[in-house]
Design a protein around this nucleic acid. Structure first.
Length: 362
DNA sequence: CATTCGTGGGA
DNA sequence: TTCCCAAGAAT
């Protein structure tokens, strides 16, 4: 059974019985069409992100912004704050750009073809095919990490990624049916997520256990091969958590480009491999906290020294005006911070709650 | 083609 | 502790 049509038929049969229930999914057999806005939003959130991590954010976004038009009208800072903690913040910036293009230039409706979708901010080869297939039932081929793994095993392909990508894509395209292409795409990803997993694949209950070449040769768990990744260097920096009476905080909105771009955070030094000199963002009685904040990004480990100070409101306000993005916020919701900044908050905040219990402490 | 860009959970 | 990785896109 290596006929692609037969393979897809078997896969769809499995999907009809085992499709995962997901907040953005219309179950197989349900005649309703998915809402393209919800499919787009979920696919962007799911880029390099687990279903478990996405669920609460998806609910929060669709409740607060039920339509693409509502999202397009949102304030940038509100969307960035709502995305805080999910990571890859360029996605949130592009999400807003895309919502505004769709609203302003496409009459509030998403393009239904891959080319039109692909032209939108934050929508690449994977996401354009996913939206076209799932939301509009186009016979497009979706290739994500799951599909790469499933196809590499089905055909026992040992070429390492990313060099193997074209070959894997060709095989995936061969499997794509003209009937129910959206369900086929989701079935491929469900199979990879629940059966054909990276480690300990459950080959014994796989609907493709018979045709799978890697299972026959005992190589499934070794695939797909990947070129080794470079080690992560350690970077160091200083971060300054300043408080202003009564409930104010010294914060910065980071530049729109680069790491944590557009996100709220505490000011500090650059993060470099050789430890930098402490350099406060403005004058004050800065005190170094014991310990440090450790955080790992995609391509480096970070160790931050945290400094705290009580600042004079008027002086801080004046001084902050001299630096782009720096400002005094009347209050702070830690949930609006990216995780590395929330770690700094968690380390620094007890300093003041301790002082309020014991005013004589200094 | 290589690099940049987050985070949390699991082995 | 450390490593891997998860429905990738932009440059």
């Amino acid at each position: 059974m290596t006929d692609p049509a037969a393979l897809s038929r078997v896969l769809l049969g499995w999907y009809d019985r085992h499709a995962r229930a997901l907040p953005w999914r219309v179950p197989p057999g349900d005649d309703r069409r998915p809402d393209p806005y919800r499919i787009w939003l979920s696919e962007v959130m799911l880029q390099q992100t687990t279903v478990a991590a996405v669920k609460d954010y998806f609910h929060k976004f669709t409740t607060r912004w039920p339509t693409v038009g509502a999202l397009a009208a949102a304030d940038d800072a509100d969307v960035m704050a709502a995305w805080a903690g999910l990571g890859y913040y360029a996605r949130a910036r592009n999400l807003l750009k895309c919502a505004r293009v769709v609203t302003d230039d496409h009459d509030g409706r998403f393009p239904e073809d891959v080319a039109g979708l692909r032209a939108l901010p934050g929508i690449g080869p994977y996401t354009s095919a996913a939206i076209a297939a799932i939301a509009f039932d186009r016979a497009e081929t979706v290739v994500d990490g799951n599909v790469e793994r499933v196809v590499a095993r089905l055909h026992d392909i040992h070429t390492p990624l990313p060099a193997a990508k074209p070959e894997l894509t060709a095989h995936a395209a061969d499997l794509t049916p003209n009937e129910r292409p959206g369900d086929h795409a989701q079935a491929m990803m469900d199979l990879g997520a629940t059966i054909c997993t990276p480690r300990n694949p459950a080959c014994g209950i796989c609907p493709w256990r018979e045709p799978c070449m890697a299972r026959a040769r005992g190589t499934a768990a070794l695939l797909p091969r990947k070129t080794p990744k470079k080690p992560k260097p350690v970077r160091h920096g200083h971060l300054y958590v300043g408080r202003v009476p009564e409930d104010g905080w010294l914060l910065e909105t980071r530049p729109a480009q680069g790491l944590l771009g557009g996100m709220l955070g505490f000011p500090g030094t650059d993060w470099t491999e050789s430890p930098a000199q402490p350099t406060p963002p403005l004058p004050g009685a800065w005190q170094q906290l014991p310990g440090e904040v450790r955080h790992t990004f995609t391509h480096f480990h970070l160790r931050l020294t945290i400094w705290v100070a009580d600042l004079d409101a008027a002086a801080a306000d004046t001084a902050a005006e001299g630096t782009a993005g720096l400002h005094i916020a009347p209050k702070l919701s830690p949930a609006a911070l990216p995780t590395v900044m929330r770690k700094a908050y968690d380390l620094a905040a007890p300093v003041w709650s301790q002082r309020s219990r014991d005013p004589l402490a200094d």
